[in-house]
Design a protein around this nucleic acid. Structure first.
Length: 466
RNA sequence: GCUCCCAUCGUCUAGAGGCCCAGGACACAGCCCUCUCAAGGCUGGUACGAGGGUUCGAAUCCCUCUGGGAGCGCCA
Protein backbone atom coordinates (compact mmCIF):
# COMPACT_ATOMS: atom_id res chain seq x y z
CA UNK A 1 0.00 0.00 0.00
CA UNK A 2 1.47 3.34 -0.92
CA UNK A 3 1.41 6.08 1.66
CA UNK A 4 -0.94 9.00 1.09
CA UNK A 5 -0.88 11.92 3.49
CA UNK A 6 -2.57 15.29 3.43
CA UNK A 7 -2.30 18.75 4.88
CA UNK A 8 -5.74 20.21 5.38
CA UNK A 9 -5.65 23.77 6.67
CA UNK A 10 -8.71 25.92 6.99
CA UNK A 11 -8.23 29.39 5.56
CA UNK A 12 -9.80 31.17 8.49
CA UNK A 13 -6.53 32.61 9.70
CA UNK A 14 -3.07 33.04 8.29
CA UNK A 15 -0.95 29.92 7.85
CA UNK A 16 1.46 30.14 10.75
CA UNK A 17 4.47 28.25 11.93
CA UNK A 18 2.40 25.67 13.79
CA UNK A 19 0.53 24.80 10.63
CA UNK A 20 3.76 24.62 8.72
CA UNK A 21 5.15 22.10 11.19
CA UNK A 22 2.08 19.92 10.65
CA UNK A 23 2.45 20.26 6.90
CA UNK A 24 6.15 19.46 7.13
CA UNK A 25 5.63 16.22 9.02
CA UNK A 26 2.94 15.07 6.57
CA UNK A 27 5.12 16.01 3.64
CA UNK A 28 8.21 14.36 5.10
CA UNK A 29 6.35 11.17 5.85
CA UNK A 30 5.04 10.98 2.30
CA UNK A 31 8.44 11.74 0.81
CA UNK A 32 10.19 9.33 3.13
CA UNK A 33 7.96 6.52 1.96
CA UNK A 34 7.76 7.51 -1.69
CA UNK A 35 4.13 8.33 -1.06
CA UNK A 36 1.75 11.05 -2.15
CA UNK A 37 1.21 14.34 -0.39
CA UNK A 38 -2.12 16.08 -0.87
CA UNK A 39 -3.16 19.64 -0.12
CA UNK A 40 -6.76 20.21 0.81
CA UNK A 41 -8.30 23.54 1.73
CA UNK A 42 -11.05 23.17 4.31
CA UNK A 43 -13.14 26.17 3.50
CA UNK A 44 -16.60 25.13 4.57
CA UNK A 45 -16.77 28.00 7.02
CA UNK A 46 -17.87 30.53 4.47
CA UNK A 47 -18.07 33.31 7.00
CA UNK A 48 -14.50 33.22 8.13
CA UNK A 49 -12.59 31.83 5.18
CA UNK A 50 -10.74 34.42 3.14
CA UNK A 51 -9.03 34.41 -0.23
CA UNK A 52 -6.06 36.11 1.34
CA UNK A 53 -5.60 33.25 3.77
CA UNK A 54 -5.78 30.77 0.90
CA UNK A 55 -3.14 32.73 -0.94
CA UNK A 56 -0.84 32.68 2.07
CA UNK A 57 -1.19 28.90 2.27
CA UNK A 58 -0.35 28.50 -1.40
CA UNK A 59 2.51 31.00 -1.38
CA UNK A 60 3.88 29.73 1.90
CA UNK A 61 3.94 26.10 0.81
CA UNK A 62 5.59 27.12 -2.41
CA UNK A 63 8.22 29.22 -0.68
CA UNK A 64 9.08 26.34 1.62
CA UNK A 65 9.13 23.82 -1.16
CA UNK A 66 6.45 21.66 0.42
CA UNK A 67 5.03 20.75 -2.92
CA UNK A 68 1.78 18.82 -3.14
CA UNK A 69 1.40 15.89 -5.50
CA UNK A 70 -2.35 16.36 -5.64
CA UNK A 71 -4.59 19.33 -5.03
CA UNK A 72 -5.21 21.87 -3.81
CA UNK A 73 -8.71 20.52 -3.38
CA UNK A 74 -11.39 22.81 -2.00
CA UNK A 75 -14.16 21.42 0.14
CA UNK A 76 -16.59 24.02 -1.13
CA UNK A 77 -16.27 22.39 -4.53
CA UNK A 78 -17.22 18.99 -3.21
CA UNK A 79 -20.71 19.77 -1.94
CA UNK A 80 -22.47 17.44 -4.39
CA UNK A 81 -20.39 14.57 -3.09
CA UNK A 82 -21.14 15.43 0.54
CA UNK A 83 -24.88 15.54 -0.18
CA UNK A 84 -24.64 12.20 -1.88
CA UNK A 85 -23.04 10.61 1.16
CA UNK A 86 -25.52 12.25 3.50
CA UNK A 87 -28.28 10.78 1.37
CA UNK A 88 -26.77 7.36 1.77
CA UNK A 89 -26.36 7.77 5.51
CA UNK A 90 -29.99 8.87 5.81
CA UNK A 91 -30.99 5.90 3.71
CA UNK A 92 -29.07 3.40 5.77
CA UNK A 93 -30.32 4.85 9.04
CA UNK A 94 -26.92 6.11 10.12
CA UNK A 95 -28.22 9.66 10.04
CA UNK A 96 -31.51 11.37 10.80
CA UNK A 97 -33.23 14.74 10.64
CA UNK A 98 -33.24 16.83 13.76
CA UNK A 99 -35.75 19.64 14.27
CA UNK A 100 -34.51 20.96 17.56
CA UNK A 101 -34.20 24.72 17.69
CA UNK A 102 -31.06 26.45 18.89
CA UNK A 103 -33.00 27.58 21.92
CA UNK A 104 -33.90 23.96 22.74
CA UNK A 105 -30.29 22.94 22.40
CA UNK A 106 -29.00 25.79 24.51
CA UNK A 107 -31.48 24.96 27.21
CA UNK A 108 -30.50 21.31 27.10
CA UNK A 109 -26.83 22.12 27.41
CA UNK A 110 -27.41 24.52 30.24
CA UNK A 111 -29.34 21.89 32.14
CA UNK A 112 -26.62 19.32 31.61
CA UNK A 113 -23.93 21.70 32.76
CA UNK A 114 -25.98 22.46 35.83
CA UNK A 115 -26.08 18.74 36.56
CA UNK A 116 -22.28 18.65 36.06
CA UNK A 117 -22.64 16.45 33.03
CA UNK A 118 -20.81 16.70 29.78
CA UNK A 119 -22.98 18.75 27.43
CA UNK A 120 -24.18 16.62 24.55
CA UNK A 121 -27.13 16.11 22.30
CA UNK A 122 -29.54 13.70 23.95
CA UNK A 123 -30.89 12.18 20.75
CA UNK A 124 -34.44 13.37 21.20
CA UNK A 125 -35.07 13.47 17.44
CA UNK A 126 -33.62 10.04 16.82
CA UNK A 127 -37.00 8.36 16.63
CA UNK A 128 -39.06 11.17 15.18
CA UNK A 129 -41.04 9.96 12.21
CA UNK A 130 -42.84 13.06 11.04
CA UNK A 131 -41.29 16.41 10.07
CA UNK A 132 -42.00 19.47 12.17
CA UNK A 133 -44.06 22.07 10.35
CA UNK A 134 -42.14 25.15 9.28
CA UNK A 135 -38.74 23.99 10.53
CA UNK A 136 -35.83 23.25 8.25
CA UNK A 137 -34.06 20.35 9.91
CA UNK A 138 -30.37 19.62 10.27
CA UNK A 139 -29.01 16.16 9.67
CA UNK A 140 -27.32 14.37 12.54
CA UNK A 141 -25.07 11.36 12.47
CA UNK A 142 -26.40 8.51 14.58
CA UNK A 143 -23.50 7.52 16.78
CA UNK A 144 -23.30 3.94 18.08
CA UNK A 145 -24.36 4.05 21.72
CA UNK A 146 -22.72 0.79 22.68
CA UNK A 147 -19.13 -0.23 22.98
CA UNK A 148 -16.00 1.76 22.43
CA UNK A 149 -13.79 3.23 19.76
CA UNK A 150 -10.06 2.67 19.87
CA UNK A 151 -7.88 5.18 18.09
CA UNK A 152 -4.64 3.39 17.39
CA UNK A 153 -2.46 6.44 17.28
CA UNK A 154 1.12 6.09 16.05
CA UNK A 155 2.53 8.64 18.43
CA UNK A 156 0.26 8.10 21.42
CA UNK A 157 -0.53 4.44 21.22
CA UNK A 158 -4.11 3.21 21.63
CA UNK A 159 -6.60 5.77 22.95
CA UNK A 160 -9.95 4.42 24.07
CA UNK A 161 -13.23 6.31 23.95
CA UNK A 162 -16.50 4.92 25.22
CA UNK A 163 -19.30 5.39 22.74
CA UNK A 164 -21.53 7.03 25.36
CA UNK A 165 -19.10 9.92 25.40
CA UNK A 166 -19.89 10.68 21.80
CA UNK A 167 -23.15 12.31 20.85
CA UNK A 168 -25.00 12.64 17.55
CA UNK A 169 -23.19 15.45 15.80
CA UNK A 170 -24.68 17.63 13.12
CA UNK A 171 -23.33 16.77 9.69
CA UNK A 172 -25.56 19.04 7.60
CA UNK A 173 -26.60 22.48 8.77
CA UNK A 174 -30.07 23.79 8.17
CA UNK A 175 -28.59 26.17 5.60
CA UNK A 176 -27.42 23.18 3.59
CA UNK A 177 -23.73 23.38 4.42
CA UNK A 178 -22.05 20.19 5.61
CA UNK A 179 -19.86 20.40 8.70
CA UNK A 180 -16.20 19.88 9.41
CA UNK A 181 -15.96 16.41 10.95
CA UNK A 182 -18.15 14.97 8.27
CA UNK A 183 -16.33 16.59 5.35
CA UNK A 184 -12.99 15.49 6.71
CA UNK A 185 -14.17 11.92 6.93
CA UNK A 186 -15.58 11.85 3.41
CA UNK A 187 -12.48 13.52 2.00
CA UNK A 188 -10.00 11.30 3.77
CA UNK A 189 -11.90 8.35 2.43
CA UNK A 190 -12.34 9.63 -1.12
CA UNK A 191 -8.75 10.75 -1.35
CA UNK A 192 -7.47 7.44 -0.13
CA UNK A 193 -5.57 8.94 2.79
CA UNK A 194 -3.61 6.25 4.57
CA UNK A 195 -2.05 8.39 7.33
CA UNK A 196 -3.76 11.33 8.93
CA UNK A 197 -1.02 13.45 10.49
CA UNK A 198 -2.39 16.48 12.35
CA UNK A 199 -2.27 18.40 15.59
CA UNK A 200 -3.29 16.63 18.76
CA UNK A 201 -6.07 19.12 19.29
CA UNK A 202 -7.93 16.77 16.94
CA UNK A 203 -7.64 13.70 19.12
CA UNK A 204 -11.13 14.19 20.45
CA UNK A 205 -12.57 14.42 16.94
CA UNK A 206 -11.01 11.20 15.85
CA UNK A 207 -13.44 8.68 17.33
CA UNK A 208 -16.34 10.54 15.70
CA UNK A 209 -14.59 10.47 12.38
CA UNK A 210 -13.83 6.79 12.73
CA UNK A 211 -17.48 6.07 13.49
CA UNK A 212 -18.62 8.00 10.44
CA UNK A 213 -16.05 6.32 8.26
CA UNK A 214 -17.30 2.95 9.38
CA UNK A 215 -20.89 3.93 8.80
CA UNK A 216 -19.96 4.91 5.27
CA UNK A 217 -18.36 1.55 4.75
CA UNK A 218 -14.82 2.89 4.71
CA UNK A 219 -11.75 1.61 6.50
CA UNK A 220 -10.37 4.36 8.74
CA UNK A 221 -6.82 5.54 8.05
CA UNK A 222 -3.96 5.38 10.51
CA UNK A 223 -3.71 8.44 12.76
CA UNK A 224 -0.69 10.28 14.09
CA UNK A 225 -1.41 13.21 16.38
CA UNK A 226 1.37 15.72 16.70
CA UNK A 227 2.08 17.74 19.84
CA UNK A 228 1.16 21.40 19.78
CA UNK A 229 3.59 24.21 19.25
CA UNK A 230 3.45 26.96 21.84
CA UNK A 231 4.74 30.51 21.95
CA UNK A 232 8.14 31.27 23.53
CA UNK A 233 6.43 31.79 26.89
CA UNK A 234 4.84 28.37 26.79
CA UNK A 235 1.33 29.58 26.17
CA UNK A 236 -0.82 29.03 23.14
CA UNK A 237 0.51 30.53 19.93
CA UNK A 238 -0.95 33.95 19.29
CA UNK A 239 -0.38 36.79 16.89
CA UNK A 240 2.15 38.43 19.14
CA UNK A 241 4.10 35.16 19.37
CA UNK A 242 4.59 33.42 16.13
CA UNK A 243 1.08 32.95 14.89
CA UNK A 244 1.84 35.37 12.14
CA UNK A 245 1.81 34.50 8.48
CA UNK A 246 4.65 32.18 7.58
CA UNK A 247 5.56 34.64 4.86
CA UNK A 248 6.73 37.02 7.53
CA UNK A 249 9.56 34.61 8.16
CA UNK A 250 10.52 34.99 4.54
CA UNK A 251 10.56 38.75 4.88
CA UNK A 252 12.55 38.46 8.08
CA UNK A 253 15.24 36.71 6.11
CA UNK A 254 14.97 33.08 7.08
CA UNK A 255 15.97 30.34 4.67
CA UNK A 256 13.28 27.74 3.95
CA UNK A 257 15.70 24.92 4.73
CA UNK A 258 16.58 26.51 8.06
CA UNK A 259 12.99 27.13 9.10
CA UNK A 260 12.12 23.56 8.16
CA UNK A 261 15.16 22.25 10.01
CA UNK A 262 14.14 24.14 13.14
CA UNK A 263 10.51 23.08 12.89
CA UNK A 264 11.51 19.50 12.21
CA UNK A 265 13.38 19.44 15.52
CA UNK A 266 10.26 20.52 17.38
CA UNK A 267 8.67 17.31 18.53
CA UNK A 268 11.05 15.12 16.60
CA UNK A 269 14.71 14.30 16.96
CA UNK A 270 17.39 12.03 15.65
CA UNK A 271 19.84 11.44 18.45
CA UNK A 272 21.92 14.50 19.16
CA UNK A 273 21.83 15.86 15.63
CA UNK A 274 20.66 19.47 15.37
CA UNK A 275 21.38 20.41 11.80
CA UNK A 276 19.67 18.67 8.92
CA UNK A 277 19.44 19.44 5.26
CA UNK A 278 16.03 18.90 3.73
CA UNK A 279 17.36 15.74 2.09
CA UNK A 280 18.52 14.40 5.44
CA UNK A 281 15.16 15.18 6.96
CA UNK A 282 13.44 13.19 4.22
CA UNK A 283 15.85 10.36 4.72
CA UNK A 284 15.71 10.22 8.51
CA UNK A 285 12.21 11.35 9.45
CA UNK A 286 9.86 8.88 10.97
CA UNK A 287 6.69 9.07 12.97
CA UNK A 288 7.87 6.69 15.68
CA UNK A 289 10.47 9.22 16.79
CA UNK A 290 7.84 11.91 17.29
CA UNK A 291 7.32 13.27 20.82
CA UNK A 292 4.08 13.50 22.70
CA UNK A 293 4.58 16.72 24.59
CA UNK A 294 4.04 20.24 23.36
CA UNK A 295 7.04 22.39 22.61
CA UNK A 296 7.68 26.09 22.90
CA UNK A 297 9.20 28.17 20.15
CA UNK A 298 12.74 29.39 20.76
CA UNK A 299 13.50 32.40 18.53
CA UNK A 300 17.20 32.33 19.43
CA UNK A 301 17.59 28.77 18.34
CA UNK A 302 15.68 29.42 15.14
CA UNK A 303 18.03 32.30 14.39
CA UNK A 304 21.05 30.16 15.22
CA UNK A 305 19.78 27.40 12.94
CA UNK A 306 19.34 29.93 10.18
CA UNK A 307 22.85 31.21 10.60
CA UNK A 308 24.23 27.70 10.47
CA UNK A 309 22.40 27.12 7.21
CA UNK A 310 23.64 30.41 5.78
CA UNK A 311 27.19 29.47 6.71
CA UNK A 312 26.82 26.25 4.81
CA UNK A 313 25.82 28.08 1.68
CA UNK A 314 28.27 29.91 -0.53
CA UNK A 315 28.15 33.64 -1.06
CA UNK A 316 26.88 33.17 -4.57
CA UNK A 317 23.88 31.18 -3.35
CA UNK A 318 23.11 33.85 -0.77
CA UNK A 319 23.64 36.78 -3.13
CA UNK A 320 20.22 36.82 -4.82
CA UNK A 321 18.48 36.51 -1.47
CA UNK A 322 20.52 39.35 -0.05
CA UNK A 323 19.68 41.25 -3.20
CA UNK A 324 15.95 40.88 -2.48
CA UNK A 325 16.42 42.16 1.04
CA UNK A 326 18.36 45.15 -0.20
CA UNK A 327 15.87 45.86 -2.96
CA UNK A 328 13.04 45.95 -0.44
CA UNK A 329 15.06 48.58 1.42
CA UNK A 330 15.51 50.59 -1.73
CA UNK A 331 19.27 50.11 -1.80
CA UNK A 332 21.22 50.50 -5.03
CA UNK A 333 23.72 47.68 -5.32
CA UNK A 334 25.55 48.56 -8.51
CA UNK A 335 29.29 48.12 -8.58
CA UNK A 336 29.39 45.87 -5.55
CA UNK A 337 29.91 42.13 -5.65
CA UNK A 338 26.96 40.84 -3.64
CA UNK A 339 28.32 37.32 -3.48
CA UNK A 340 31.47 38.64 -1.82
CA UNK A 341 29.40 40.70 0.60
CA UNK A 342 27.28 37.70 1.51
CA UNK A 343 30.33 35.53 1.93
CA UNK A 344 31.94 38.07 4.24
CA UNK A 345 28.80 38.52 6.31
CA UNK A 346 27.28 35.06 6.47
CA UNK A 347 28.95 34.06 9.71
CA UNK A 348 28.30 37.43 11.29
CA UNK A 349 24.56 37.69 10.91
CA UNK A 350 21.77 35.34 11.75
CA UNK A 351 19.22 36.26 9.13
CA UNK A 352 19.25 37.72 5.65
CA UNK A 353 17.59 40.81 7.05
CA UNK A 354 20.43 41.26 9.51
CA UNK A 355 22.83 40.66 6.67
CA UNK A 356 21.21 43.39 4.64
CA UNK A 357 21.36 45.80 7.57
CA UNK A 358 24.96 44.92 8.24
CA UNK A 359 25.95 45.43 4.62
CA UNK A 360 24.54 48.92 4.12
CA UNK A 361 27.89 50.67 4.42
CA UNK A 362 29.05 48.85 1.32
CA UNK A 363 26.52 50.75 -0.75
CA UNK A 364 26.86 54.28 0.47
CA UNK A 365 29.49 56.35 2.21
CA UNK A 366 29.05 56.77 5.95
CA UNK A 367 26.77 59.69 6.69
CA UNK A 368 28.45 60.09 10.03
CA UNK A 369 30.73 58.22 12.42
CA UNK A 370 29.63 56.28 15.41
CA UNK A 371 30.70 58.64 18.22
CA UNK A 372 32.49 56.14 20.43
CA UNK A 373 34.33 54.51 17.53
CA UNK A 374 35.31 57.89 16.09
CA UNK A 375 36.47 59.23 19.43
CA UNK A 376 38.89 56.36 19.66
CA UNK A 377 39.95 55.87 16.08
CA UNK A 378 39.54 59.14 14.19
CA UNK A 379 41.62 61.50 16.22
CA UNK A 380 44.58 63.81 15.78
CA UNK A 381 46.76 60.94 16.99
CA UNK A 382 45.47 58.43 14.49
CA UNK A 383 45.37 60.82 11.56
CA UNK A 384 49.01 60.17 10.61
CA UNK A 385 48.26 56.46 10.69
CA UNK A 386 45.42 56.93 8.25
CA UNK A 387 47.62 59.05 6.02
CA UNK A 388 50.26 56.34 5.98
CA UNK A 389 47.71 53.63 5.32
CA UNK A 390 46.21 55.64 2.52
CA UNK A 391 49.58 56.02 0.89
CA UNK A 392 50.25 52.30 1.10
CA UNK A 393 46.83 51.44 -0.27
CA UNK A 394 47.06 53.97 -3.06
CA UNK A 395 50.22 52.23 -4.20
CA UNK A 396 48.50 48.87 -4.59
CA UNK A 397 47.71 47.64 -8.08
CA UNK A 398 44.04 47.74 -8.97
CA UNK A 399 41.76 45.93 -8.82
CA UNK A 400 42.65 45.25 -5.21
CA UNK A 401 42.96 41.76 -3.85
CA UNK A 402 42.32 40.80 -0.27
CA UNK A 403 45.71 39.12 -0.05
CA UNK A 404 47.47 42.18 -1.39
CA UNK A 405 45.73 44.45 1.10
CA UNK A 406 46.47 42.12 3.96
CA UNK A 407 50.18 41.95 3.11
CA UNK A 408 50.49 45.71 2.65
CA UNK A 409 48.72 46.55 5.89
CA UNK A 410 50.67 44.00 7.88
CA UNK A 411 53.90 45.38 6.47
CA UNK A 412 52.84 48.87 7.47
CA UNK A 413 51.95 47.73 10.95
CA UNK A 414 55.29 45.99 11.33
CA UNK A 415 57.04 49.13 10.16
CA UNK A 416 55.23 51.08 12.85
CA UNK A 417 56.05 48.44 15.40
CA UNK A 418 52.37 47.82 16.06
CA UNK A 419 49.78 45.11 15.64
CA UNK A 420 47.52 44.97 12.67
CA UNK A 421 44.67 46.22 14.80
CA UNK A 422 46.41 49.54 15.21
CA UNK A 423 45.95 50.27 11.51
CA UNK A 424 42.93 48.17 10.77
CA UNK A 425 40.61 49.73 13.29
CA UNK A 426 40.98 53.38 12.24
CA UNK A 427 40.59 52.25 8.64
CA UNK A 428 37.52 50.28 9.54
CA UNK A 429 35.85 53.26 11.17
CA UNK A 430 36.91 55.47 8.28
CA UNK A 431 35.36 53.18 5.75
CA UNK A 432 32.31 51.79 7.60
CA UNK A 433 31.48 54.54 10.04
CA UNK A 434 31.53 52.04 12.89
CA UNK A 435 33.91 49.73 14.62
CA UNK A 436 32.33 46.57 13.31
CA UNK A 437 32.81 45.00 9.91
CA UNK A 438 34.13 41.87 8.24
CA UNK A 439 37.93 41.52 8.19
CA UNK A 440 39.56 44.68 6.92
CA UNK A 441 41.17 43.08 3.86
CA UNK A 442 37.91 41.62 2.59
CA UNK A 443 36.03 44.81 3.38
CA UNK A 444 38.43 47.04 1.49
CA UNK A 445 38.67 44.64 -1.44
CA UNK A 446 34.91 44.59 -1.85
CA UNK A 447 34.65 48.35 -1.60
CA UNK A 448 37.42 48.91 -4.16
CA UNK A 449 40.18 51.48 -4.42
CA UNK A 450 38.17 54.48 -5.49
CA UNK A 451 35.58 54.22 -2.74
CA UNK A 452 38.06 53.39 -0.03
CA UNK A 453 40.44 56.25 -0.83
CA UNK A 454 37.55 58.69 -0.97
CA UNK A 455 36.23 57.58 2.39
CA UNK A 456 39.68 57.59 3.96
CA UNK A 457 40.27 61.14 2.78
CA UNK A 458 37.06 62.23 4.38
CA UNK A 459 37.96 60.44 7.57
CA UNK A 460 41.39 62.07 7.67
CA UNK A 461 39.74 65.44 7.40
CA UNK A 462 37.37 64.51 10.16
CA UNK A 463 40.19 63.24 12.35
CA UNK A 464 42.20 66.41 11.93
CA UNK A 465 39.22 68.57 12.62
CA UNK A 466 38.30 66.81 15.82
C1' G B 1 -18.18 19.90 35.28
C1' C B 2 -17.21 15.63 32.02
C1' U B 3 -13.86 13.12 28.40
C1' C B 4 -9.11 12.85 26.33
C1' C B 5 -3.84 14.15 26.03
C1' C B 6 0.82 15.56 28.24
C1' A B 7 4.99 15.94 32.22
C1' U B 8 13.89 15.37 31.89
C1' C B 9 18.07 21.84 32.45
C1' G B 10 14.94 28.74 31.23
C1' U B 11 13.92 26.48 26.00
C1' C B 12 14.45 22.23 22.15
C1' U B 13 15.76 17.39 23.29
C1' A B 14 18.86 12.23 24.22
C1' G B 15 17.39 8.48 27.38
C1' A B 16 12.93 2.47 25.63
C1' G B 17 15.52 -1.11 34.14
C1' G B 18 21.82 -1.16 35.40
C1' C B 19 26.21 2.17 30.15
C1' C B 20 22.88 8.25 33.84
C1' C B 21 25.16 11.28 41.09
C1' A B 22 21.53 12.10 33.45
C1' G B 23 24.24 13.35 27.38
C1' G B 24 23.70 17.08 23.18
C1' A B 25 21.84 21.95 21.33
C1' C B 26 20.04 27.22 22.00
C1' A B 27 20.67 31.04 25.59
C1' C B 28 24.03 32.65 29.66
C1' A B 29 29.20 33.23 32.09
C1' G B 30 34.56 32.67 31.73
C1' C B 31 38.88 31.45 28.90
C1' C B 32 41.44 30.58 24.10
C1' C B 33 41.93 32.18 19.00
C1' U B 34 41.94 37.15 16.93
C1' C B 35 42.50 43.54 12.97
C1' U B 36 36.67 44.77 15.18
C1' C B 37 32.37 41.81 15.20
C1' A B 38 31.40 37.09 14.37
C1' A B 39 32.50 32.03 13.53
C1' G B 40 35.27 28.17 15.99
C1' G B 41 37.51 25.64 20.39
C1' C B 42 37.54 24.77 25.70
C1' U B 43 35.36 25.26 30.64
C1' G B 44 31.09 26.21 33.95
C1' G B 45 26.12 26.46 36.26
C1' U B 46 21.01 24.82 36.00
C1' A B 47 16.63 19.32 34.97
C1' C B 48 14.28 13.53 35.78
C1' G B 49 6.84 17.74 39.22
C1' A B 50 5.35 15.03 44.18
C1' G B 51 4.19 10.63 46.84
C1' G B 52 3.57 5.57 46.87
C1' G B 53 4.69 0.84 44.84
C1' U B 54 7.28 -3.32 41.49
C1' U B 55 12.63 -4.73 41.33
C1' C B 56 18.93 -6.68 43.73
C1' G B 57 18.53 -1.99 40.84
C1' A B 58 13.82 3.16 38.04
C1' A B 59 14.42 9.20 34.55
C1' U B 60 12.88 4.60 32.37
C1' C B 61 7.28 -0.11 34.54
C1' C B 62 2.43 0.50 37.70
C1' C B 63 -0.88 3.62 40.89
C1' U B 64 -2.40 8.23 43.14
C1' C B 65 -1.85 13.29 43.35
C1' U B 66 -0.28 17.91 41.38
C1' G B 67 0.48 20.93 37.28
C1' G B 68 -0.31 22.12 32.08
C1' G B 69 -3.17 21.49 27.52
C1' A B 70 -7.24 20.04 24.21
C1' G B 71 -12.25 18.83 23.28
C1' C B 72 -17.43 19.00 24.73
C1' G B 73 -20.94 24.57 18.68
C1' C B 74 -25.95 24.54 12.96
C1' C B 75 -16.36 26.76 14.30
C1' A B 76 -12.64 24.29 11.88
Amino acid sequence: MTVRTRFAPSPTGMLHIGGVRTALFSWLYARRHQGTFILRIEDTDRERSTDQAIQVILDGMKWLGLDADEGPFYQTQRYPRYREVIGQLLESGHAYHCYCSRADLDEMRAAQMARKEKPRYDGRCRHRTAPVEGVTPVVRFRNPDQGQVVVDDIVHGPIVFRSEELDDLIILRSDGNPTYNFCVSVDDWDMGITHVIRGDDHINNTPRQINMLRAMGATPPVYAHLPMILGPDGTKLSKRHGAVSVLEYKDAGFLPAALLNYLGRLGWSHGDQELFSLEELVQLFDLDAVNKSASALNPDKLAWTNQQHMMRLGGSALAPLLGEQLASRGVQVEGIDLAAVAEALKERTRTLAEMAEGSLFFFHDPTGYEPKAAAKNLTAETAPLLVAARAVLAGLPTPWSGAGIDAALKALAAELGAGLGKVAQPLRVAVCGSGVSPPIDATLAILGAETVLRRVDRAIAHARGS
